[in-house]
């Protein structure tokens, strides 16, 4: 398989209804990207659909949660020598058309991470009342803790270069990583740029952050942000495990 330099990670847990649409959207609208689906031991038809369509899919043997699944994607990107990785959620909120633009910005600006921000040009779906207050809070927190301004700290559209790929392959939060990793990276001297993107309202109208989880989310992420202020470099990878499978030499 001839590999490109850019990769989209698609974590999938019980996404049988969305997975084909998501992959086809990427194939059609972001042709300079490879993609990899990380099937987190889905209980529905996800695995069968992916195999039937001959999609590029990695099956986790045991359900391990979103963080571990995405991290498996970063590990994959590291092993196969990708230079630019973005994560796309299976809910159709992110438009693949912006990916190329983000990748060009990543390559030309030399930043380590590009965040697609809904609020730079205030276009498209702007999120709803309470959630926007949460976003403002994390934006404020990041400004206090790092001195940098990130207008959309909870945006899932985050594209990273090889340095951060290697970082995430070793160290990635279990869940809700966005604001936390932004602070960790800024504290360790990586650079983050934002570019304006449009997002759609999610198709099925259900966020992974329900009201029930909102309290957990606010508490956990705020604490994680505060701790990330004192972040350390990740442990060096275990030597005997780290192999290199293909692509250009890293």
């Amino acid at each position: 398989m001839a590999r490109k330099k850019r990769l989209v990670i698609i974590p999938a847990f019980n996404e049988a209804g969305n997975i084909i649409k998501t992959v086809e959207d990427i194939r059609a609208n972001a042709p300079s990207f490879d993609y990899v689906i990380i099937n987190d031991a889905s209980k529905d038809d996800t695995a069968r659909l992916c195999e039937k369509a001959a999609y590029n899919v990695i099956h986790l043997p045991i359900n391990s949660g979103i963080g571990a699944a995405v991290q498996a994607g970063y590990l994959y990107a590291k092993r196969y020598g990708y230079e630019c990785v973005v994560q796309v959620d299976g809910d159709g909120q992110h438009e693949a058309t912006f990916l190329t633009e983000m990748a060009e910005e990543l390559e030309s600006s030399g930043a380590n991470m590009i965040i697609g921000s809904r609020f730079l040009e205030k276009e498209g779906f702007q999120s709803t009342g309470l959630r926007r207050i949460g976003i403002k809070w994390f934006s404020f927190l990041i400004r206090v803790l790092t001195g940098k301004t990130i207008t959309d700290p909870t945006s899932g559209m985050r594209m990273v270069n090889r340095d951060v790929i290697n970082f995430f392959a070793e160290e990635y939060p279990k869940d809700y990583p966005e604001p936390e990793t932004a602070i960790t990276l800024l504290r360790l001297g990586y650079t983050i740029n934002e570019i304006p993107v449009r997002m759609k309202e999610r198709a099925d109208g259900k966020s992974s952050i329900s009201f029930k989880r909102a309290v957990y989310y606010m508490f956990k992420v705020t604490l994680a942000c505060a701790l990330a202020r004192f972040a350390l470099e990740p442990f060096p990878p275990e030597k005997f495990v780290t192999q290199y499978y293909g692509g250009e030499n890293p």
């Binding site: 099956h59 986790l60 043997p61 391990s64 571990a68 991290q71 498996a72 590990l75 994959y76 495990v241």
Partner: peptide, 14 residues
């Protein structure tokens, strides 16, 4: 355990 799961998945893929 997390790393083992990821390694197993990547090896199976390989």
């Amino acid at each position: 355990i997390k790393r083992l799961i990821q390694e197993e998945a990547l090896l199976a893929y390989r």
